[in-house]
Design a protein around this nucleic acid. Structure first.
Lengths: 145, 145
DNA sequence: CTGCAAGTTAAAGTGCACTTGAACTCAAGT
DNA sequence: ACTTGAGTTCAAGTGCACTTTAACTTGCAG
């Protein structure tokens, strides 16, 4: 009968993340393991969920540092419940909404520019949305931030 | 009366991109300059449009290498016309559509998972959309690609 | 003509997210 | 017992997109 914990290879296979990346995540405090008497890592099955969460957050465009901070919200000591994950998921949901909104703003403005070919900074809404920054010479900074 | 060309500092100020970045773009073949007798760079005003294009494409998530390849489509010798830029803009517009679609897919599936807290690989649609890859053990690879 | 901000180069450094390599140990099948 | 695949550590390497540094030159205002 198989033990409930996973080796690093098993976790890698199930999550689609390389063992080297898992060690790296652990070093950075994003995931945790216990060790066997022979010093090998063993992962709780719940770590799989953590890895999943990390990959989703990366898709959304969040850095490992910010992901680590978010994961610190999870309870120490006990396995996170459905409610714990739901709360974090909801947090990324709004991150994602923000990014989608940014992309759509970019697209809509690009649509406006396609007809005129006006990709220059002086007058193009793409760089100076609302033109309030037009005189300050800051360029794309606003959209980029 | 001011000459029509821009110094690197002027281009930097107008585009919101650091001089060091502009030199880097030039080294990588994304933009071009002529030199004064004293070896200083001078930029055509049309280079401003190139820089704008580069920043937009980066926002969309395109690498400098792919941006350079796209810019190679622009005519050599003559200043790009409205039509030239329109063609390239349309190309990025579809890139952007793709990314927005990916984000929305991610969001919709995350919505489905928020209620159940099921961020695990075995059954979650977020990792195995349509479940066709579920047996292959590839994990997030499909959405990540 | 002088002073100084702005420009030049090549090489090295930065931050992020990992990967690779070397040298070694562990676990499991025959 | 032996072999082999999987695991371990630490250090160094990779790729991208720049930035910084050092030593030096230009160009313009006064």
């Amino acid at each position: 009968m198989k033990p409930v914990t996973l080796t690093i290879g098993e976790l890698a296979a199930r999550s689609g993340v390389a063992p080297s990346a898992l060690r790296f995540y652990e070093e950075r405090g994003l995931i945790h393991s216990t060790r066997t008497s022979g010093n090998q890592r063993r992962y709780e099955r719940s770590e799989l969920r953590r890895v999943s969460f990390i990959r989703i957050a990366q898709q959304i465009g969040v850095s490992l540092e910010r992901i680590r901070d978010a994961l610190k919200e999870l309870p120490e000591g006990r396995t996170p419940t459905k409610a714990d994950w739901t709360r974090l998921s909801a947090h990324w949901r709004s991150e994602l909404d923000d990014r989608i909104a940014l992309m759509q703003r970019l697209r809509d403005t690009l649509d406006g520019c396609i007809g005129c070919g006006c990709l220059s900074l002086q007058s193009c809404r793409l760089y100076n949305p609302g033109d309030e920054l037009a005189a300050q010479g800051a360029g794309p900074r606003k959209l980029l931030g």
